[in-house]
C-alpha cells in the first residue's frame, strides 16, 4: 500500500516534468497576444484527472506552478501569483466538471471549462492588481481565444488518451489490484 503510494507520487513528479516540458515547447507556436498562453502544460493535468483522485491532481498542479516558477525565475513575482491562481482555479473547475458529468462530458469539454476558468481568474486579477477596471474590455477576445485553445488542448489530450501505449501501461498497472 505504502509502496503503491510512493509509486503514485513518483508518477505525479514525472507528470510534473511533462508539464514543464510542454510549457517549454509553447514557444514553437505563434501567439496572437503577448500575454496569451496556449496551455499545453495542461495536457498532463487532463490525463491525470482520468487516472488519479483529486488530491493527486492538485499536487500535480502545485508541482507544475512551483517548477515553472523555479525554472523561469518567476517564483517571487506577480507572474507566479497569476499562474498559481489560474492553474488552481482551472484544476478545480476541471475536476468539478469531470466528477459531476463524468459520463456526459469529454476531455474537450473538461479542457474548455478549465481554460475559461483560468482566463477568467487571470482577467480578474489583472483588473484588480494591474490595469484597473478599464481592462475589462480585453475580456471578450481573451476568453474567446481561451476557449479555442481549450478545444485544441482537449482534442490532443483525448487523442493521446486513446492512442498512447505508455498511458495504457500506466492504466493497466494502477488498475491492477
Amino acid at each position: 500500500m505504502i509502496r503503491r503510494q510512493y509509486e503514485k507520487l513518483e508518477l505525479i513528479a514525472f507528470m510534473g516534468a511533462l508539464c514543464l516540458f510542454f510549457s517549454t515547447i509553447e514557444y514553437l507556436f505563434p501567439k496572437p497576444f503577448p500575454f496569451f498562453r496556449l496551455g499545453l502544460a495542461n495536457l498532463p493535468v487532463l490525463v491525470t484527472i482520468k487516472l488519479f483522485p483529486p488530491g493527486y491532481v492538485l499536487l500535480l498542479v502545485l508541482l507544475k506552478v512551483l517548477g515553472h516558477g523555479l525554472i523561469n525565475g518567476t517564483l517571487a513575482s506577480y507572474v507566479f501569483l497569476f499562474s498559481s491562481a489560474g492553474s488552481f482555479s482551472s484544476a478545480a473547475v476541471m475536476l468539478a466538471a469531470w466528477y459531476l458529468c463524468r459520463d456526459r462530458i469529454s476531455l474537450v469539454g473538461v479542457s474548455v471549462f478549465g481554460a475559461l476558468a483560468s482566463n477568467m481568474v487571470q482577467i480578474m486579477l489583472s483588473v484588480t492588481f494591474i490595469f484597473g477596471r478599464s481592462a475589462w474590455i480585453i475580456a471578450p477576445p481573451f476568453m474567446t481565444l481561451g476557449a479555442a485553445s481549450g478545444v485544441a488542448v482537449g482534442l490532443f489530450a483525448a487523442r493521446f488518451c486513446e492512442q498512447s501505449r505508455w498511458l495504457a501501461v500506466i492504466r493497466d498497472y494502477y488498475a491492477a489490484p
Partner: peptide, 30 residues
C-alpha cells in the same frame, strides 16, 4: 518585481520538506 525574481530564483534552489523532494524529482525527470 519580475526582474528581482528572475535574478534571485533559480532551479537549484531547494525547497524544504517532502514537497522540496518532489520538486527535485520533477527537475530530475525534466
Amino acid at each position: 518585481l519580475v526582474f528581482v525574481s528572475l535574478f534571485s530564483v533559480r532551479p537549484d534552489l531547494r525547497l524544504p520538506g517532502k514537497l522540496g523532494g518532489l520538486v527535485a524529482r520533477v527537475f530530475f525527470y525534466f
